[in-house]
Amino acid sequence: MSNTAHIVQFFSSDEAYVRAAGQFLHEGLCAGDTCVAVATADHHRQLDAYLFDIGLNTAALSAEYRYIPLQAEHTLQTVFDPQFGIHRERFHRQFNQLISQAAARGQPVRLFGEMVSLLAERGQPDYAIQLEELWNELSRQHNFTLFCSYKVSPFTENPRYRKLLHSIHSHVVRDGA
């Protein structure tokens, strides 16, 4: 079962981040997809404003269960164990349920997330990689398109991690500066 895409893009500015994430969500919402955005509170405000400016009402879409906004920090805490990293079973239980519910409308599912970027920014790049690999595991059970964002940082510029990030994702979008 693999109609899944796992996309990554690296950003040097919030403006580029919001534009790319907003376009990804806009494209999905206009196609009728169920879209999930796992972002920080500040980025949710910016994404809501971006989508509103191009004619979409995220509150109305959320009420229709077409747009599911989740707080990245809170969502990460539910699957993260400070001693061991990402708790595999909790991750699968939580996201299997989320994707199953999102797919219940009978439409494709799109997820946008920045939990991996939060881990990288905290100096926990190995946990970010662990989370990326869990998304790939989940893609063997569900069809979805996942768009991951990373702020440009010493982690993303480190040749070892950059190569690893490129290999984990099915698509690398190069313009995000």
Score class of each variant (00 low, 15 high):
116 V>P: 02
84 F>R: 15
36 V>E: 00
90 R>E: 01
174 R>V: 05
86 I>W: 11
99 I>F: 11
95 F>C: 02
16 A>E: 13
86 I>M: 09
105 R>Y: 08
38 V>C: 06
108 P>L: 02
6 H>I: 11
50 Y>L: 09
100 S>M: 05
54 I>T: 06
171 H>Y: 00
38 V>R: 01
23 Q>F: 04
4 T>P: 15
133 E>C: 01
172 V>F: 04
172 V>N: 03
8 V>M: 10
57 N>C: 09
27 E>S: 02
133 E>K: 09
142 H>P: 04
67 Y>S: 07
73 E>D: 15
71 Q>Y: 09
55 G>A: 13
93 R>M: 14
120 A>S: 15
153 S>P: 07
61 L>Y: 05
153 S>M: 08
93 R>W: 04
139 S>M: 06
69 P>E: 12
117 S>I: 01
109 V>Q: 08
108 P>D: 02
159 P>R: 06
54 I>Y: 06
119 L>F: 07
162 R>H: 10
1 M>A: 13
58 T>C: 11
14 D>F: 10
58 T>M: 14
80 F>D: 00
129 I>Q: 01
103 A>M: 00
45 R>P: 01
173 V>W: 00
100 S>P: 11
99 I>D: 09
154 P>K: 08
56 L>Y: 02
25 L>T: 04
12 S>D: 14
166 H>E: 07
130 Q>K: 09
131 L>N: 00
23 Q>Y: 07
139 S>A: 12
19 R>M: 13
34 T>G: 03
129 I>P: 03
101 Q>Y: 09
107 Q>D: 07
117 S>P: 01
139 S>P: 04
146 L>H: 09
62 S>Y: 00
20 A>Y: 04
8 V>N: 05
